[in-house]
Design a protein around this nucleic acid. Structure first.
Length: 283
DNA sequence: ATGTGTTCCTGTCCGC
DNA sequence: TGCGGACAGGAACACA
């Protein structure tokens, strides 16, 4: 999935096409996503103006003039495409729905927006805007890593109480919002911490660097237009560029990029998911 | 109460 | 070229 930077990139691509515009037509083609979508979702968003497109963690939030908010999660393979934007390197005729196009929207200005998600780990829901933060999917989520509530003191307190590997703690959305498998590996590399270190063994001295590493890696990825391994596309169909600058993710067997380091990037599996690290740079 | 493993679903890639 | 297996950005849930 799209992790936080990819979702933010998608959001920024949607704002000029949708914010302040009215949804003229909507068609929900499948209800059986990760969580069942409301059967009347299309009817409830049709005719509404999109007042604002926000983001909480990896969720996109579409505030509608009706007083409802559409909550959209991209899951692992979800993407949103916008007609009229360049589609270099990716052809998807939005006029003809493809197999995994689940939600089709036509704005009053003619722009078409398509939510496509082959694996259907994504989800769609509608909630009263005032109740958004209390929605069951959102209410347990921890602070935004780019916001003021996320800082070294907070993170140190969380890590100190956890007996699981630091990798697992950083992936826990209740601890920090928006981190996923790629950026956890990248942030831990920058912080010189091995992913299988037990969280409460991360020293107080190490936490500030870990905190800034998380923030920096996310900001750089957003600046670069989001990362990508295979499925992620920006809304204009372009691949994100940040993948070129992954220091460790997906680079097992390749040389460490730290100047002067003779290390080779290694891959381990932790609770079923790959972690990447340099055993020389990280301990 | 916590921590770990499994599971949902489809697509792609790699080795034989 | 076909085929089987490994693996993929998430996260809720079942179980120890």
């Amino acid at each position: 999935m799209p992790e936080l930077p990819e979702v933010e990139t998608v959001r920024r691509g949607l704002v000029p096409a949708m914010e302040g515009e009215v949804i003229a037509k909507a068609e929900l083609r499948r209800l059986d996503l990760r969580h069942p979508a409301p059967p009347d979702l299309a009817n409830r968003i049709m005719g509404q103006r999109i007042e604002r497109i926000g983001r909480r963690s990896k969720y996109l939030l579409f505030d509608l003039s009706s007083g409802e908010t559409m909550i959209l999660h991209l899951g692992m393979s979800g993407r949103i495409l916008v007609s009229g934007q360049a589609t270099a390197g990716f052809t998807h005729d939005l006029a003809t729905p493809e197999k995994h196009d689940h939600l089709l929207i036509t704005m009053a200005n003619g722009t078409r927006i398509t939510f496509n998600d082959a694996r259907r780990f994504g989800s769609l829901d509608l909630v009263a805007t005032k109740d958004t933060t209390e929605h069951w999917l959102l209410k347990g989520i921890g602070p935004e890593p780019l916001g003021n509530d996320f800082n070294a003191e907070y993170l140190a307190a969380k890590l100190a109480r956890k007996a699981s590997p630091v990798k697992a703690v950083l992936l826990d959305q209740a601890v920090i919002a928006g981190l996923g498998n790629i950026y956890v590996s990248e942030a831990l590399f920058r912080a010189h911490i091995l992913p299988d270190r037990i969280a409460n063994r991360v020293t107080k001295n190490e936490v500030p660097l870990l905190t800034t590493s998380i923030r920096d890696v996310l900001l750089e990825a957003i600046d670069a237009g989001g990362s990508s391994l295979r499925d992620h596309r920006q809304t204009d169909g372009e691949l994100g560029y940040f993948q070129k600058s992954h220091a460790v993710y997906g680079r097992q067997g390749e040389p460490c990029r730290t100047p002067g380091c003779a290390g080779v990037i290694q891959r381990i599996v932790q609770s079923g998911r790959s972690s990447f690290f340099c055993a020389i740079c990280q301990s």
